[in-house]
Amino acid sequence: MRRTTYPVVVRRRGPALERAIFEATLEQLIVTGYARLSMEAVAAAAQTGKASLYRRWGSKEQLVLDALSASLPPAPEPPGTGSLRADLLAVIGALRAAMASRTGCAARAVISELDHERAAAFIGLVHRQILDPAHLVLLQVVEAAVERGEASLEVATPTVLDIVPAMMMYRAKTQPGGFTEEDAQALVDQVLLPVLLRPASSARGDRG
């Protein structure tokens, strides 16, 4: 007599279950958006019970925050190519990859869908894990260029460093192809290098 076999159900626990829940959360954000995301849908996609979610996360906001925080890529390291232009392009390339990742798409979906007040917690997360580290690595790149005699540290103001994420977010929202490699080269060659390579004394003179 032929025996009937049944698939073995493996119950995930701990880190494995958490990863599955976070992956399901990101996928739901990309497909349905934040407003339509529900704990029930995430539980079904992760093949777990709602109780597993509610035991740890009291709301979908906290679940989404934890999913994004755990999944965002680490900040890029200073490339150290020996060239300011090459370093800037490498850093911007790493930021482009982060923005185009599933986690980056999910984060942008949340921020673009909510008004500023409701998105405050998510904006804070983006600052802590993306924008602030990006500012730091860009400053480190400029400091290395200063040591080589390429650039002036005095002109690397917060406003100048803000140009990179601001332009990337603007193009991501307004341009079908997002922020492209050609955009990155134009940003470096037409904006950043003319400013960063400018003598500090000249910048002070323009301010009167």
Rank of each mutant, 00 (worst) to 15 (best):
S83A: 15
T4K: 07
M169D: 02
A75C: 07
I123S: 06
A107D: 05
A144L: 07
A45W: 03
R96T: 06
L197K: 05
A100N: 09
A156V: 01
D183W: 03
R56H: 12
V126M: 09
L131F: 10
A51Q: 14
H127R: 08
S201A: 12
Q185S: 14
V191H: 02
L84G: 13
A16C: 13
E154R: 13
I21Q: 10
R19P: 15
R171K: 13
P165N: 02
M168Q: 09
V141Y: 06
R102E: 04
D162F: 01
T103L: 05
A67K: 03
V110K: 05
L193Q: 10
T25L: 01
V164M: 05
E147N: 13
M168V: 01
K50D: 11
G149F: 01
T25S: 06
R118I: 00
H116D: 10
A203C: 05
P78Q: 05
P7N: 11
R128W: 07
A46Q: 04
I123N: 02
A97R: 12
P194A: 04
L72C: 01
E77F: 07
T5L: 12
A172I: 02
K50Y: 10
R19Q: 15
V91M: 08
D162R: 02
K60Y: 04
L65Q: 09
A203T: 05
A90H: 07
L139Q: 07
A109C: 14
G177P: 08
S38G: 01
E182N: 14
A94G: 11
C105N: 04
P165G: 00
K173E: 05
E117D: 09
M167Y: 01
R55I: 06
V8K: 15
V64P: 11
M1W: 13
V64R: 04
L53T: 05
T48E: 09
R148D: 13
P15E: 12
I92F: 11
G49R: 07
P199Y: 08
P176E: 11
A98V: 11
A200H: 11
Q47R: 13
V188D: 03
A35H: 12
T4W: 07
S71L: 02
F179N: 06
A109R: 09
L196F: 05
L153N: 02
L17E: 15
G14M: 12
S202A: 12
P176R: 10
M168D: 01
T174I: 14
V142I: 08
D132K: 03
A166R: 13
A98H: 09
L187P: 10
A106E: 04
L29K: 01
R207G: 08
L89D: 02
A43H: 03
T5E: 12
